[in-house]
Amino acid sequence: MKVTIEENEETGKFTIKVKTEDGEEKTIEIPKENLEEILAKLPPNVEII
């Protein structure tokens, strides 16, 4: 699983794009305050880009 994290400076939010092993892609946008909480919940086999 690969996770790409991009900061949107205009909105102050982060866009998180997840690509699973089977090629499925999902995108979510979260507030900056929630980034550490989300990262802590990721499984250890995740590659963060």
Rank of each mutant, 00 (worst) to 15 (best):
I16G: 00
N34E: 14
I16R: 00
F14V: 13
M1R: 00
E21G: 07
K41R: 11
P43W: 13
M1V: 09
E47T: 13
I5N: 02
I30N: 00
M1K: 01
T20L: 11
P31M: 12
G23T: 03
E25L: 09
T20S: 07
P43F: 14
M1C: 15
K19E: 14
E10H: 11
L39N: 00
I48S: 02
I49W: 06
G12R: 03
E36I: 12
N34V: 14
E33G: 08
E33L: 05
F14Y: 13
T15W: 08
T27W: 14
L42E: 02
K19M: 14
K41C: 12
E36A: 15
A40I: 03
E25D: 03
E47Y: 05
K41H: 08
T15F: 10
E29H: 10
V18N: 00
N8P: 01
E36W: 14
I49D: 04
K41F: 09
T11C: 08
T11D: 09
F14E: 01
V46I: 11
L35T: 01
E25P: 02
V3T: 01
K26W: 15
I5W: 03
I30F: 08
N8T: 04
A40H: 09
K17A: 08
K13A: 07
E25H: 05
I30A: 05
I48N: 02
T20V: 07
G23V: 00
E10C: 13
T11K: 06
G12K: 05
V46S: 06
I49T: 08
L35W: 06
F14S: 03
E33R: 05
E29N: 06
K19P: 04
K32T: 06
I38E: 13
E24V: 12
N34K: 14
I38C: 12
V18H: 02
E47G: 07
E24N: 11
M1F: 08
T4I: 13
V18T: 08
I28W: 14
N8D: 09
P43T: 05
E37F: 10
P44D: 11
I30Q: 00
L39D: 00
N8V: 05
V46L: 07
T20D: 08
T20M: 09
A40R: 06
E21T: 06
K26I: 15
K2N: 06
L39Q: 00
I5P: 00
E10T: 11
I49G: 04
N34W: 15
E7C: 14
E37D: 11
E10G: 06
K17L: 08
I49P: 03
G12D: 05
T27Q: 07
N34D: 14
I5F: 03
P43C: 13
I49E: 09
I48D: 02
G23W: 02
L39G: 01
E9Y: 12
T4R: 01
L39I: 07
N45C: 08
K13H: 12
I48L: 09
E36P: 12
N34R: 14
K26F: 15
N34L: 14
E47C: 11
